[in-house]
Design a protein around this nucleic acid. Structure first.
Length: 110
DNA sequence: TCGATGACTATAG
DNA sequence: CCTATAGCCATCG
């Protein structure tokens, strides 16, 4: 590991710890990291990490509305909801069904 | 060091 | 439901 950025590293850790069949939000992760509501960093650094060499289940990370905002910028974008569906997460119109129940809070679990 | 950017969030109309 | 505006802060050139 060539000195991974602390922020990116923590994001990778948390995202990698998200159990299958569960989804998390940028705000929750940002809050857990102590970055407050700067959820943009989570998604941005996540995208950078994923394009670099780190393979993270980014498809399990959605916005506060349960919308697959990442699917718009994730290469094979359409596979994002497919992956969620395979893990037991129903996705309709880029929106997670029962998002409130499938929501996984890192600060709560950790 | 500075400026622009963005996979966000919340509030308002 | 949709658009607009403001706040947020790490990353990149």
């Amino acid at each position: 590991m060539p000195a991974p950025q602390n922020f990116a590293y923590k994001v990778a850790e948390v995202v990698a710890l998200i159990p299958p069949g569960r989804v998390s939000t940028y705000g929750a992760i940002a809050n857990y990291l102590g970055t407050g509501m700067s959820a943009r960093m989570v998604g941005h650094v996540l995208g950078k990490s994923i394009e670099g060499h780190t393979v993270l289940p980014a498809h399990r990370v959605v916005n506060a509305q349960g919308l697959l905002t990442g699917a718009h910028a994730f290469p094979p974008a359409h596979s994002m909801e497919d992956r969620l569906a395979q893990e037991g997460v129903a996705v309709i119109d880029n929106r997670v069904v029962d998002f409130g129940r499938l929501f996984w809070d890192p600060a709560r679990h950790l």
